[in-house]
Write a protein that binds this DNA or RNA. Structure first.
Lengths: 225, 225
DNA sequence: CGCTTTCTTACGGAAGGCTTACGAGATTGG
DNA sequence: CCAATCTCGTAAGCCTTCCGTAAGAAAGCG
């Protein structure tokens, strides 16, 4: 369903949380310290971040600030029990919710559901992605290339948006299918190929030699500004 | 948009809530105890009150009673977590909604939007939207196209106003239904289609090729000036 | 040069949107 | 207080658009 980044230095805790989130159909990535969290988030945007406040290398509040600098992604904080200061700090930093330790994994899963329900229907794909030649407006679902508007279908737009939200990052066909169609999609991943073809037809000057939506042979596709 | 009185003795919490409400365009006043709340409300009526139950000098329930004695202003209660008695007491006292601590500021902002939508069906949306060809008067609920007045029904106007208040932004049918009919509307979202049809019949030069109320295939509708 | 991966094309089906018509409820005017 | 009118929501049929699949061609890799 959604991509979730879990930042938690205690492996046991992380593992339990992961299991519960996967059971809800989410795509979970785990990192064990703050520095890795920031790097991972830069590499691949998550739909939601679960963030322990006490972390090695770079603590939770710093991570939160760094993430908030570039994204409105929902953040759920894990804080020590009843530490009022932690709580206030978390809220101030822009966390969307927080859970006090010790917590039950079920509670975390429930909060995740609640936060996602609150944040995904309205927000979500509404960021504006701007590059030299291409502008992609998530709210309008419109794309312009060198000022000229281009009409894309739903799938085409979703694929482009997904690729462009992480420029130069390579996404496999399977990953794209899972992200846009959902894990329960029965069909073939080759359908992505066709959509990419049609997408190139619309946005590339020379579709046979694509400049923006590149093929990485044996791996997948990536967007280059 | 609306004037909101926040009654919360914890300055940090109050500040965070304030920031989120201001972001939604509201005019926020903060007081830190119950006595001041009553005085402030008497001095200047608010459109909505956010009221902590635990307060110095005069507790939340007393404040609620005093306010209710003179006004039907919507009140959102902040109560301790899971304290069922607080909740019941709050509802009994005439609160319109309540949020349990610890809460996320986004949730509070969402509740505020929901309550305002519920309680101020006509007010609040009194902005004048002016474009080259179309003028939409939220206060008078009138529309003119190239100087000519056009008579719209309630639904038609609401849809047009909602779309036009965010030009070029795409709204899904479900979103429109939720915003105008309320979250608890049971009916079909396709009813929006019909209203849009009738709306176009009135405001578009060529309803078959709409210029202002555009269809974004697979997504929803958007207004273009 | 053979094998795998990707490209390209065409087509049938499915989904989404449009249009129309109708009955129930609300509103207005006599 | 009743009748005429208006508005709203639903349903059904039609039409357009888009999507997924399959199959052969081309391209990249070892």
């Amino acid at each position: 369903m959604s991509k979730i980044l879990v930042v938690e230095d205690e492996p046991m805790v992380a593992e339990v949380v992961e299991r519960y989130l996967r059971r809800d159909g989410h795509d979970v990535t785990i990192v064990f310290d703050g520095q890795s969290a920031v790097e991972q988030f830069a590499r691949e945007r998550a739909d939601l971040v679960i963030l322990d406040l006490m972390l090695p290398r770079l603590d939770g509040s710093a991570v939160c600030r760094k993430i908030r600098a570039t994204s409105d992604v929902p953040i759920i904080m894990l804080t020590a029990r009843g530490d009022e200061r932690d709580r206030l700090q978390g809220l101030e930093l822009g966390a969307d919710d927080y859970v006090t330790k010790p917590f039950s994994p079920r509670e975390v899963a429930a909060r995740v559901r609640a936060v996602l329900r609150r944040t995904t229907p309205v927000e979500g794909r509404e960021r504006m992605l701007e590059f030299d030649r291409i502008q992609i407006d998530g709210a309008r679902r419109s794309v312009t290339i060198e000022g000229r508007p281009v009409a894309l279908t739903v799938r085409e737009f979703d694929i482009l948006y997904h690729l462009a939200s992480n420029p130069s990052h390579v996404f496999s066909r399977d990953h794209i299918v899972a992200s846009l169609w959902g894990d329960d999609f029965v069909g073939d991943a080759s359908t992505v190929t066709v959509h990419v073809r049609r997408l190139r037809e619309k946005i590339e000057a020379d579709p046979a030699r694509p400049r923006h939506v590149r093929t990485v042979w044996g791996v997948g596709y990536c967007f280059e500004p």
